[in-house]
Amino acid sequence: MVLDLLRRLELPQPARHVVSRLRALWLFRHAAVGRKTLAAGHVKVDARGALEIGEGTYFVSGLVPCRLVVHPGGRLHIGSRCTFNYGVTLEARREVVIGDGCMFGSWVHITDSIDGSTPKPVRLGAGSWVAHGAVINPGVTLGERAVVSAGSVVTQDVPARMMAIGNPARIASQALTRTEKT
């Protein structure tokens, strides 16, 4: 109950920013982490391999912490300006590379090996968006600014600016045509 109350304590924005920055510095102390990376909530970090986090990446606070697991000899690279909602799990046995400016919804699960099978690298292109509850299987590559819809299970590559929907995910026929700011 006390913890509950402490969590509810709402600090003004500048103070929250400082707390988030300090939390990030502490949590990612064993990682190669860029400037301005913020952790507004707890992140479970288990980095026995190489963990690299770019500049200005943001972990929001939420119901459950994010989990970053890097096995010995593995490499987990997170680009700059990525945003992580709560409950995201990233697990790297060999290699998981997240491009710059990616967005992750809550409960997203990305791993390069299921149940200890031979790891196949996972790559997410810059600006891709993985929505709530989506799962990305080992060996999948997402193109630049690709979108994975909520609850999808991605088993094949998604080309740039395309959208993957369903379980197993299919590529929506229409490309995301409009050019956008990143």
Partner: peptide
Amino acid sequence: RLAKVMDSNFHAVNADRL
């Protein structure tokens, strides 16, 4: 358990995401 109900996509799919 873990069901989710939301009435917004939070980001535009086909435009500026912010």
